[in-house]
Structure formats: structure tokens, C-alpha cells
């Protein structure tokens, strides 16, 4: 009951925080796509560099998110606020995105590429018309993980001054205001599960018919 009460009394705040949350997630995912997808494509050219960069990405991915935000806050150029939050989220997206682009492109049958070359396709066209369409199932899976993960970690950015859905949880904890906390947790969970399901459905649609695996 108190949940519904809290919800109806604070609709405006909820909308404001959700807006902030989505803006942060959108920016982070957008920047990550712009940086990491080309990086992943480049890495397919050199196995040595791929191993190095993937190891680095893995190490970054291990760092607890609260730690990452905390370390960024102490660096003078970043400090409290959106810059640190964005930077941390983009760093976290590195692992799933680079890995999936790399794996997706590497998984394409060598013979198909050979055939394309034999037909006289340029490297650019092979990339656009063969590698990316055939690699898309794995790449999209990485994108899905990135979006869901970013939504979750963005909530933690409330501790470094973001005013988003995580704020309900942090404020609720401090004030021991259970309805507030539970509302925040529920909204974030619903958004994360919803995004995951939605992207999962799209994932099923975009896979070329011949590549579909029956699970």
C-alpha cells in the first residue's frame, strides 16, 4: 500500500530521475559503440594486439563498479558528476563490445571470405556485406549485455552525484524509507528485465534464417 502511495506522490521525481537515468545510459552506450566497435573491427587484423587489448578489457571489467567510480572521483579532471560516470560506463562496455565484435567477425567461415575475395570484392565491401551481417548475432548479443549492464551500473553512479533512479535506493537507505528504496529497486529491475527481454526478441529477429540455432 505504502508503495502505491509513494509512487503516486512522487510521480514527477520518478519521471525526472528516469529521464536522467536514460540520458546517461544513452550517452554511455552511444559513445561506447562509437569507440569500441571500430576498435574491435581493427583488432581482427592483428591477433597479438587483440590478445593484449582483450586482456586489458578483462582486467578493467573485473574492477568493482563502486571502486571504479571512487577512483575516478579522486582524479582532478573527472571529479564528482557526469564526466566520471560516463567514463566509467564506457570503460565497462569495452569488454563485452570488443569481445563480441572480435568473436563475431572471427567466427565467419574463412571460405565465405575467400569466395567474396575471388568475386573481386574490396575489403570494405567484404566488411560491410559479409563480415558484419554474418557476425551480427554475436555482436548483437554483446550489445544486449552492454545495455543491460550499463543500466544497472548507472544506478550506482548516484554515489558520485548523478541524480538518477539509484538515488531512490541510496536516499531510501539513508533515511530508512523502505517504500522509497523498494520503488527505486523495482523500477530499475523492471527496466533492466524489460530491456533484456526486448533486445532478446530483436536478437532473434535479426539472425539470418540459415544461422538460427535451435536451442
Amino acid at each position: 500500500m505504502s508503495l502505491i502511495n509513494f509512487f503516486s506522490k512522487n510521480t514527477e521525481t520518478i519521471i525526472e530521475y528516469s529521464g536522467n537515468h536514460f540520458t546517461l545510459v544513452l550517452w554511455a552506450v552511444g559513445i561506447s559503440l562509437l569507440i569500441w566497435v571500430p576498435t574491435g573491427l581493427l583488432l581482427t587484423k592483428s591477433d597479438k594486439w587483440a590478445a593484449r587489448v582483450l586482456a586489458l578489457a578483462n582486467t578493467i571489467f573485473c574492477i568493482p563498479s563502486l571502486s571504479m567510480f571512487a577512483i575516478l572521483v579522486t582524479i582532478p579532471t573527472f571529479g564528482l558528476g557526469r564526466k566520471s560516470a560516463l567514463f566509467a560506463l564506457v570503460l565497462y562496455a569495452m569488454m563485452p563490445l570488443i569481445r563480441s565484435v572480435y568473436d563475431g567477425v572471427k567466427n565467419v567461415d574463412r571460405n565465405v571470405i575467400e569466395a567474396a575475395k575471388g568475386m573481386g570484392m574490396s575489403t570494405g565491401r567484404i566488411l560491410r556485406e559479409i563480415l558484419v551481417p554474418l557476425g551480427i548475432p554475436i555482436i548483437f548479443a554483446g550489445f544486449r549485455i552492454t545495455v543491460v549492464m550499463t543500466t544497472g551500473i548507472a544506478a550506482i553512479a548516484t554515489y558520485i552525484g548523478e541524480r538518477n533512479l539509484g538515488r531512490f535506493i541510496s536516499e531510501g537507505l539513508v533515511r530508512s524509507n523502505t517504500p522509497m528504496m523498494v520503488t527505486g529497486a523495482l523500477i530499475i529491475s523492471v527496466i533492466a528485465i524489460g530491456l533484456d527481454t526486448l533486445l532478446g526478441l530483436i536478437e532473434k529477429r535479426i539472425v539470418p534464417k540459415g544461422l538460427r540455432v535451435t536451442r
Binding site: 544506478a155 539509484g166 523498494v182 527505486g184 529497486a185 523495482l186 529491475s189 533492466a192 528485465i193 530491456l195
Partner: peptide
């Protein structure tokens, strides 16, 4: 299959939300 789907959904819930739901 059912268990995996269920666990998949649980996994999508952000950690901070699980912690917040555990408290009450």
C-alpha cells in the same frame, strides 16, 4: 530450460537493486 530462463531474468536485475530489495 525453465530454470535457465528464470535465472537469466534474475541475472538481469542490477546488483544494487537486489541489495536494496534484500534489506526490507
Amino acid at each position: 530450460l525453465i530454470t535457465l530462463n528464470l535465472l537469466n531474468i534474475l541475472q538481469a536485475i542490477p546488483g544494487i537493486a537486489v541489495i536494496a530489495l534484500a534489506l526490507p
